[in-house]
Amino acid sequence: MPNERLREALLKQGLNLDHVARAANVDRKTVERWITKNRLPYPKHRHTIAAMVRESENYLWPDALPAERKAEVGVSEVVKVYPHRNAIPVELWDRLISEATKQVEILVHAGLFLVERPTFVKDLAKKAENGAQIRLLFGDPASREVVRRSEEEQLGKATLGGRIRNALAFYRPLRAVPGVELRFHKTTLYNSVFRFDDEMVINTHVYGFQGAHAPALHLRRLSAGDVFETYSESFETVWAESKPADF
């Protein structure tokens, strides 16, 4: 079976077999076998290719590392665990937002705390104008999933939907900005995801608690890691099932 992930990653970056062969110092036919026959490159070659295509090794070659090694790398991906999301220092959010240049991906219900930052929406617009990909996923305020979560968090039926609508009002200026996409989802949200290039904050959700009072993980992407990639793939799944935000 061909390695379609590797093929797609190369195409996305505008790279061909010769580019990879020169970078890895191997024969062109060797690279072709890595793709068409899904042959597994040596670790040094996997590192080189992953860096070239800006993907993790674990994504390109899911079976390359034994489970024990994946577990070890996974521990290293966790920078810090916070007992509550509101315990994350303001300085960390400032750095993550200011340093992101390639992509910002956010999966929330409302994420109202983000727009409490005076320049957040303008920062996203500027990043998009400079070539970053901005993808924002909000809970559909009219969905039964949002109503149910609002009740589970003991907020009352309409409260969370109202918060989402309040948050969306701040994002209106982004609707006309190229490079920014806003969508609604109707998923059961187990975690909120905040990705800034190769770093991510995961706000877990705990039944009966609001997000601000639930634990959060600060993750850093490692080429051979699995944790960051798991949440990234989850975001992609929700994105594929979402619809353009109409507000």
Rank of each mutant, 00 (worst) to 15 (best):
E233Q: 12
L168Q: 00
V79N: 07
V206R: 13
F184P: 00
L65Q: 05
I106P: 01
R175W: 04
E145Q: 14
G179Y: 05
L15I: 11
D94F: 06
F228Y: 04
E181H: 11
L155D: 03
A125I: 05
I49Q: 02
Y231Q: 02
N130V: 05
I49H: 02
L11T: 10
V177Y: 01
S76N: 12
L174K: 03
F138V: 03
D246H: 12
F170D: 03
V146M: 09
T101P: 01
A132R: 03
L92V: 14
A21S: 14
L92C: 10
G179T: 06
T119K: 14
A24S: 12
E236D: 14
I97K: 03
F228W: 01
H109C: 13
P244I: 15
G156F: 15
T36Y: 09
Q210A: 13
L40R: 14
P215T: 05
E4D: 10
R175A: 07
V180D: 01
A169K: 14
L6M: 08
V104S: 01
D198Y: 06
D198V: 06
S192I: 02
V79W: 09
R5W: 04
N16R: 10
F113M: 10
I202P: 00
T187W: 02
K80I: 06
P41V: 11
L107S: 00
A142H: 11
A71W: 05
K12D: 12
R7Q: 12
S150R: 00
A142Y: 10
P41W: 03
A128I: 06
H185W: 04
